[in-house]
Amino acid sequence: MTQKVALVTGAARGIGLATTKLFIDQGWKVAMIDRDGPELSAASKTVSDAASPFEYDVSDPAQVDQMVEAVLSALGRLDAVVNNAGVADFLPVEDTSFATWRRIMETNLDGVFLVSQATIPALKETKGAIVNIGSISGLRASTLRVAYGTSKAAVIHMTKQQAAELGEYGIRANCVCPGPVKTKLAMAVHSPEIISAYLDAMPLGRYGTENEISEVIHFLCSDKASFVTGQIVAADGGFETTGVGLPALRRE
């Protein structure tokens, strides 16, 4: 059986690294993409030889073309592309500079477009899958997220466009929208008040884990999801479903 290959952006940490490890556990090879060279090098040493690190910036069109060429030269094929690379800056609307807006859009939106477009020829050959990482911030508005939330909302719609246009080639495109996830960064910046508010708003009453998100990503890339495309999956403990005000109505 031919060993499948996944390309994962933002693979040096968090959900990207967890996804890399799960793919490898399931017998895949992984091209780990990240622009943070030292962090990528360190992360790649924590996984097996089935992972190959590639230092590139997905927001740069020239680098993306070079990246795809390098990955295909080294690994020979692509069966799945996971567009996970992303940045965030949480500011009020009136305090969000255009420079900040563009910095977030360049990675979160432009990067998804560039990587997806550049990998289409390889995915046509394997009838592969694209999984874009959105956010519940792209599904519902929130304070301090005018750039981040808008970028993720655009990714959600881009996923639907990809599914509509690429299905004729056998390429599937889906989007995973994580809710609050227990990452090192989240735990460092979420105050006790923020954590309490999130827990009250989620039916499952807890943060998710990086591994739980990676399981959804892997499923959507696998043959088990062979008839699933154009779908937006909120992996968020039910947060997006409940709307506003329901926690106060819940039974004790």
Rank of each mutant, 00 (worst) to 15 (best):
G111F: 03
N108M: 06
G76A: 07
D110V: 06
L144A: 11
I104G: 00
V131E: 02
A85Q: 00
S135M: 06
A141C: 12
V64H: 00
N83H: 08
A88M: 13
V64Q: 05
I130S: 01
T159I: 02
L139Y: 05
H157M: 13
A153Y: 08
A141E: 04
V93S: 11
D79V: 04
S137P: 06
V93F: 14
T100K: 10
V93R: 09
N84W: 03
V131G: 03
A99S: 13
P92K: 07
W101T: 03
R145Y: 07
T107P: 04
A129V: 01
T100F: 05
S97K: 11
L75P: 00
N83M: 03
H157V: 09
S142G: 15
L91N: 13
V155K: 01
L114Q: 08
V146S: 15
Q66A: 14
F90L: 12
R140Y: 13
Y148T: 02
W101L: 13
S137Q: 15
K127T: 10
I156W: 02
I156L: 10
S142T: 15
L91K: 10
G149V: 10
L91Y: 07
L72D: 01
I104T: 03
V112P: 02
R77N: 04
Y148I: 06
L144P: 02
A85P: 06
E94H: 13
V87N: 01
N132V: 05
Q63E: 15
R145C: 06
R140P: 02
G128C: 07
M105L: 15
A74M: 00
T150L: 09
E106F: 00
G138D: 07
I136V: 15
F98A: 10
A147G: 09
V81H: 04
L78E: 02
T150P: 01
Q63D: 14
R140N: 14
T126K: 04
S142I: 08
H157K: 11
V131R: 04
L72C: 04
D89E: 14
V71S: 00
S97E: 14
D95F: 11
S59Y: 08
A80F: 06
P121C: 07
M158K: 03
M158S: 01
D95E: 15
A85M: 06
D60Y: 10
K124H: 11
E106S: 11
V82S: 01
N108L: 05
V155Y: 03
N108E: 02
F98G: 00
E165L: 14
A141M: 09
T107C: 05
L72E: 07
V82Q: 03
A129C: 05
R140A: 15
L91W: 01
A164V: 11
A62P: 08
D79S: 04
K152L: 02
A153N: 07
A153H: 09
K124Q: 15
N83S: 09
G128P: 05
A153M: 10
I120Q: 05
W101H: 07
S135Y: 08
T159S: 07
K160P: 06
S151Q: 04
L91Q: 13
N83V: 04
W101Q: 10
E125D: 07
Q161M: 09
A62V: 14
S137H: 14
A80N: 03
